[in-house]
C-alpha cells in the first residue's frame, strides 16, 4: 500500500495525542498530577494539538475535503465514520476537562468525570482507527489479530513517554511514571517484533489462481491492460519499502524502542535537569521512530489486487 504522508502522520500524531489525553484525563482527574496552569496548558495543548494536526492532515488527504462533514453519517456500518464521530465527540469532554483542570485548577467533581469521559473517548477513537485497518480483508498484514492491539499499545506507549517528558520537564516526574513509560516501550517493541514475525510467515489463501478463477497449475501475468502505472498500482502496488524493509525495520527498532528505552533508563539515574532532557529526547526519538514504523506498516502491506499484475 502507498504510504501517503498525510495518513502516516495522522495515525502517529493522533495515536500519541489520544494516549496523552487519556493519561492526563485519568491521572490529573484523579489528582495524581498537581493542577498547575503552565503544566496543564502545555500538556493539554500538546495532546489536543497533536490530535487536531493529525485530523487536519487526514482531511487534507481527501479528494473533496469540503464534504468531510458527510463522514459523520454512516457510523452504523463504517469504521471510518465511527472514527469521525468518536474523534469529534471526544473534544467535548476534553475541552471541559481542559477548562476545569487548567483554567480553574480543579481536579474533583465534574472535572474528574470530564477527564474520565475524555479518556474513554480517546481510547474509543484509537480503537476505531485500528479497526479501519483491521477490517480490510484484502490486506492480510492488516486484517490480523495484531493490528487493533498494536494501535492501542503504541498509543499508550507514545502517550506515556510524552507524559513522562512533560512531567520531568516541569520537575514533577516520578519513578512510577518513568517505569510505566519504560515498560510500555518494551511491550511495544515486543508487539512489533511479534507482528513482523507473524507477517513474515503469513500464508495467504488468495492466489493468482483464485483471483482469476483458473484452477490448478500456474497463472503467470503475460500482459497488463495498460502501459503506464494506473491508480491501482500507484495506490496499492507500492514496492520501495519492501526492498529496504530489513534496514527500515532496524531503524524503527533503534529510534522507536531501543534508544527511548536507554534514555528512560538513564533518566532513572540522572538528576534534574538531565533526567528531563533525557526524557524529552526519548519522546522525540520515539515519535520519529513511530513515523518510520507507520510508513512500513503501509509499505509492507500487500493488497490482493497486485495478484492481477503478477506481483
Amino acid at each position: 500500500m502507498h504510504p501517503a504522508f498525510s495518513v502516516v502522520f495522522f495515525t502517529t500524531a493522533t495515536g500519541a495525542g489520544y494516549g496523552l489525553l487519556s493519561l492526563l484525563g485519568v491521572l490529573a482527574g484523579q489528582g495524581f498530577i498537581p493542577p498547575d496552569f503552565w503544566l496543564g496548558l502545555t500538556g493539554m495543548g500538546l495532546a489536543l494539538g497533536l490530535i487536531s494536526a493529525g485530523l487536519l492532515s487526514s482531511a487534507g488527504h481527501l479528494g473533496r475535503p469540503e464534504r468531510a462533514w458527510r463522514s459523520f453519517s454512516q457510523w452504523r456500518s463504517s469504521w471510518l465514520s465511527r472514527e469521525g464521530v468518536a474523534s469529534v465527540a471526544t473534544f467535548i469532554p476534553a475541552g471541559l476537562f481542559g477548562i476545569g483542570w487548567v483554567v480553574l485548577g480543579r481536579t474533583s467533581g465534574w472535572v474528574a468525570v470530564a477527564g474520565l469521559l475524555a479518556a474513554i473517548g480517546a481510547v474509543a477513537t484509537v480503537c476505531t482507527t485500528g479497526m479501519i485497518y483491521a477490517s480490510l480483508k484484502p490486506i492480510a498484514q492488516w486484517h490480523s489479530r495484531f493490528t487493533l492491539p498494536g494501535y492501542l499499545i503504541f498509543s499508550a506507549m507514545t502517550g506515556c513517554v510524552l507524559l513522562n517528558a512533560l512531567l520531568q520537564g516541569f520537575a514533577v516526574g516520578s519513578n512510577t511514571l518513568l517505569a510505566a513509560a519504560l515498560l510500555l516501550t518494551v511491550l511495544g517493541w515486543g508487539w512489533k517484533l511479534a507482528t513482523w514475525r507473524y507477517n513474515d510467515r503469513l500464508e495467504i489463501p488468495t492466489t493468482a489462481n483464485t483471483a482469476t478463477g483458473l484452477a490448478g497449475g500456474t497463472v503467470r501475468s503475460m500482459e497488463w491492460p495498460h502501459t503506464e502505472e494506473n491508480y491501482l498500482l500507484k495506490e496499492m502496488g507500492f514496492r520501495i519499502a519492501r526492498k529496504h524493509s530489513v534496514r527500515l525495520r532496524q531503524i524503527t527498532q533503534v529510534l522507536a524502542f531501543a534508544l527511548p528505552a536507554l534514555l528512560l533508563v538513564a533518566a532513572f539515574a540522572l538528576p534534574w535537569p538531565y533526567a528531563a532532557v533525557s526524557s524529552m529526547l526519548a519522546a522525540i526519538a520515539q515519535l520519529a521512530g513511530m513515523l518510520v514504523e507507520r510508513w512500513l506498516f503501509f509499505a509492507e502491506a500487500k493488497h490482493t489486487v497486485t495478484l492481477y499484475y503478477g506481483r
Binding site: 481527501l62 479528494g63 480490510l136 484484502p138 490486506i139 490482493t304 489486487v305
Partner: peptide, 27 residues
Amino acid sequence: DKCIGCKLCSWACPYGAREFDTDVGVM
C-alpha cells in the same frame, strides 16, 4: 455528489474494481 474521495472503498475491494478520479476528486 456525496463522495469525499477518502479512497477507503478502493482499499476494501480485493478486485481493484474502483478507480479514483484525481481530477474530480471522487471515486
